[in-house]
Design a protein around this nucleic acid. Sequence first.
DNA 1: CTGTTAGCGCTTTCAC
DNA 2: GTGAAAGCGCTAACAG
Lengths: 340, 340
Amino acid sequence: MKPHQTNIYDIAKALNISKSTVSRALTGHAQVSEKTRKAVLELAEKMDYERNMLSINLISRKTNLIGVIVPEFTTSFFPEVVIGLQEKARSYGYNIIISQSDECFATEVENTKIMLSSQVDGVIASLTKDTHTFEHFKIFQRKGIPIVFFNRVCEEMMVPKVVINDYDAALTAVEHLITTGKRRIAHLAGPETLATSKKRLRGYLDALRKHNIDIDENLIIPYDLTVGKVKVHVKRLMKMKQRPDGLFVVNDPAGIEAIQTIKKMNLRMPQDIAIVGFSNDYGSDLIEPGLTTVAQPKKLMGSVAMELLYNLIDKEVSEWKAVTVTLDAKLIIRKSSSLS
Amino acid sequence: MKPHQTNIYDIAKALNISKSTVSRALTGHAQVSEKTRKAVLELAEKMDYERNMLSINLISRKTNLIGVIVPEFTTSFFPEVVIGLQEKARSYGYNIIISQSDECFATEVENTKIMLSSQVDGVIASLTKDTHTFEHFKIFQRKGIPIVFFNRVCEEMMVPKVVINDYDAALTAVEHLITTGKRRIAHLAGPETLATSKKRLRGYLDALRKHNIDIDENLIIPYDLTVGKVKVHVKRLMKMKQRPDGLFVVNDPAGIEAIQTIKKMNLRMPQDIAIVGFSNDYGSDLIEPGLTTVAQPKKLMGSVAMELLYNLIDKEVSEWKAVTVTLDAKLIIRKSSSLS
DNA sequence: CTGTTAGCGCTTTCAC
DNA sequence: GTGAAAGCGCTAACAG
């Protein structure tokens, strides 16, 4: 039970002045006598006075709070984006309130409700793999609360987005495998609900087509991002009569798991099978062989998202523009795909 | 610029009733006619009405918000603790607002101010390595806002804390090295500002004493947690005339870096030098050789901290008890210290 | 330079 | 069962 917290009225009483004057002194208003100001400031300090932002926000209809909704916190991707996000937010004078949805749609919906009732001034979000409807996000638009998506974006909403060039990066990654002589290239494909997954799949397909390699549906494995299942998928792949000689995996945690599985099977990388992951997560350069992967500018992604959001706050809804910023990802070649 | 948000008065006007009635209908008060309630609920839905928690919190002097202050987000330790924290908080009906101090004292102080003015109902914190005064935390106590520390705790404050048995774990870790025949064991020691570092150092020293091994001050290297500096420290150690045959490192990121450095020097682990880290971070089992380390129950640490905090909220300050919960850490032996 | 008044959106007596 | 009024802590006209 919080005891009574000092408020401006307490200070006013003690000093025998009105609370307006106290308020003015505290907020640094010009027209306050030096004497009064000093007295107020001193007493405030002594009484541990701290402004109650609830009332101020209530008046100003502004909280300087940005809601951040991420699907998970277990890979290094989202924490790193958050670092960039928070840094930029701080520079704008905004604080962030983070919630992670644990890849669960219902939790995501609940989190948006909380953001809404907390009166956030804006929202930055990345979808869970299960998100299939977007009513809970559209409500922000209707209420004139700006929203920006990053990485896992909502395709059907006209709002600013920050993504990386998943398609190009995937195409480059698979071409890299082809260049090293691989011809039977498998793909662990992410959930179809995620645009990133779909784009990476398209990049994979187009790389094969471009090099006149037949597409074998059996080599495209749907993977729901549950790391534990990678082992089974990889083993099955490697036990095919015509086993693949290359494997493009939708993200790094899975890539790392794949490497471990293949090592246990006593197959050589990249000779027997070459692996390419996606995201350059922490760990991809620790494992042996190092995982060839696609590096994403994570912190930058966060700060760009915050920038886009900032440009919408305080603007009329009619002026909002739905830009999509595409950041460049870069292939990092390591031993899992290349001997040299 | 947020446009007008629907409030209870809008609903009242539209229905030609008073806002008190709307409030009662919305909050599920008993004495409202079924007819009115239904009308209110329906209109609220249609008008995208969302309760403004600012005003409610202002009245109730309660926000259901827990402030979480962590020093960093770059290792996997804190994000994992946060997962446990948030899970438990949610089960209690609390939301969390996270801020990371980036290992910077000034940022930490600033963050506490934000928590204070955001009227959080409680605080869960872990100190930066630079935190040397605690006035910014003591103010919460004075204001009757409960605070719980975890991992990097404030020794001089009488508040609940969640720690792991750093001393025992360190002692066990170093004894493990001794058992495998190592006698010149070096230690990369964390900042003295952190109790965890000090306890791990004491564990290291006592393990040596216990086994009658002379303590060589030259083998105790002060390390400020800047990963980039590990390489230099390790190289210097390994170039001593009498080089160490064991190395106990204060945390895993440094342990991983040490392994990489030693590999580049073409020395064998554990034969030439055995390494033990601390924390079982992501990556410690990916690197080769795997890093022997001390596993901490991270998620549990978060949920216990939240539990302790919850037990203080709504209690009179006089009833607060300053328990310290010590969780058990466990040595995980991998190839960096053991051949078998 | 300072006090008075109204009001942010909501809940909660107290009447009727 | 419903309305009127007060008030949470603060700021911002408007007077004086």
